[in-house]
């Protein structure tokens, strides 16, 4: 949801500043950023697959959190750089993160409800 006053007063400014209405803020990263991002993504993917093949690590409590963190990192990098949310209008960030939060909340709630994740609440458990 956009904040209620976010567009106030910027209509004319937006028009005047842009000159044309293509809207995308044209400060997209360049080739050097793109290939660095691709390299980082590849490295993380290799790290993830490598984790999978280390039995002692798979058996440890860190396996799932580390994999989740790594994929969240990849997710974030693609969204910020390739989908250029880092550079784009904040409205697009709101349009994406709002639903993403609802989606994550729904997944976690469902996993709780189906007993896939449990919290020990002492007396209640």
């Amino acid at each position: 949801m956009t904040s209620p006053e976010s567009h106030h007063g910027q209509t004319a400014a937006a028009l005047a500043a842009q000159g044309h209405l293509e809207g995308a803020v044209h400060e997209h990263p360049t080739w050097s950023t793109y290939w660095k991002v691709a390299t980082i993504l590849t490295v993380i993917t290799v790290a993830e697959v490598w984790c999978y093949y280390v039995p002692s690590f798979v058996a440890s409590v860190w396996f799932v959190p580390v994999l989740l963190a790594l994929s969240a990192l990849k997710f974030g990098i693609v969204v910020l750089f390739y989908m250029h949310l880092k550079y784009d209008h904040k409205l697009f960030r709101a349009l994406f993160t709002g639903p993403l939060i609802v989606a994550m909340f729904t997944i976690v709630a469902l996993l709780f409800l189906f007993g896939k994740v449990a919290v020990r609440l002492g007396l209640l458990s």
Binding site: T2, P4, E5, H7, H8, G9, T11, L91
Partner: peptide, 11 residues
Amino acid sequence: INMRAPGMNLM
């Protein structure tokens, strides 16, 4: 989001 007349801010 995008077709409000000038001055028609969200509030």
